Computed example of a mutant assay.
Amino acid sequence: MSTPVLLLNCGSSSIKYKVIDADSEAVIASGIIQRIGEESGTLDHKLESETVHVDRGFPNHARALTYLVRVFNAHGPDLDTIRAVGHRTVHGGEAFRSTVVIDDAVLEKLKELSPLAPLHNPPGIAGIEAAREALPDVPHVAIFDTAFFATLPPEAYTYAVPVDLAKAHGIRKYGFHGTSHSFVSRKAAEFLGRDYGNLKQIVCHLGNGASISAIDNGVAVETSMGLTPLAGLVMGTRSGDVDPGLHAFLGRELGMDLGEVDNLLNKKSGMLGLAGVTDFRDLNELIEEGDEAAALALDVYCHRLISFIGAYIAVLGGVDVISFTAGVGENDSLVRSKVVGRLAGVGAILDEQANQARARDARVISTPESPITVLVVPTNEELAMARETKAAIS
Rank of each mutant, 00 (worst) to 15 (best):
S30V: 03
R35E: 11
S98F: 02
L107S: 01
A142G: 01
A142I: 00
E48R: 14
K18Q: 15
V138G: 00
G31Q: 13
G86D: 06
L43P: 02
I32G: 02
V54A: 09
I125E: 04
P59T: 08
I82G: 08
E39F: 08
I102R: 00
I102C: 00
D104G: 00
S114D: 02
L43N: 09
L107W: 00
L47D: 10
R63T: 13
A147G: 09
T81P: 06
I82E: 02
V101S: 00
N60L: 08
R35T: 07
D55Q: 15
R88D: 02
D78V: 04
E25H: 11
R83Q: 14
V71F: 11
S30N: 12
P59S: 12
T66C: 11
S30K: 15
D137S: 14
S30T: 10
I36M: 11
K109P: 01
V106C: 00
P115V: 06
R97Q: 14
I36H: 03
A95V: 01
V138M: 03
E50C: 08
T51G: 12
A22C: 07
D103S: 00
E38I: 03
L65I: 15
P77H: 09
V69G: 06
K18C: 04
T99P: 01
D55C: 10
A95P: 01
S40G: 04
F96W: 07
T42M: 11
S13D: 08
H140Q: 04
G127H: 06
D21S: 03
V101K: 00
G76P: 08
R83W: 03
H61G: 08
A117P: 04
D137G: 07
H61R: 10
S14G: 05
G41Y: 04
I82K: 09
Q34F: 05
D145H: 03
R70F: 06
F72W: 13
T146Y: 05
A64P: 01
S40R: 15
A131H: 03
T51I: 11
A134M: 15
R88V: 03
T51D: 11
F148M: 11
G86R: 12
T51R: 15
H91S: 03
E25W: 09
R88E: 04
E48V: 08
H91P: 05
P136A: 08
P118M: 12
R97E: 10
F96Y: 10
V52R: 12
S24R: 05
G57Q: 09
D44M: 13
E112Y: 01
G127Q: 08
T99N: 06
A131Q: 07
D23T: 13
V141M: 01
R83I: 04
Y67Q: 11
E48H: 09
K111Q: 13
G76H: 10
R56C: 06
A84W: 02
R83T: 09
S13C: 09
V138K: 00
E38K: 15
L135D: 01
N121A: 07
P118L: 11
I82Y: 12
K46A: 11
A117G: 10
D23V: 15
G76S: 11
F148N: 14
A117W: 05
A134L: 06
D103M: 00
I102V: 01
S24C: 07
P77R: 12
L135F: 15
R88C: 05
V52P: 02
T89N: 05
V101R: 00
P77S: 12
A26G: 06
S114N: 10
A126S: 14
T51S: 15
E38L: 14
F58C: 06
R70Q: 15
S12W: 05
E48K: 15
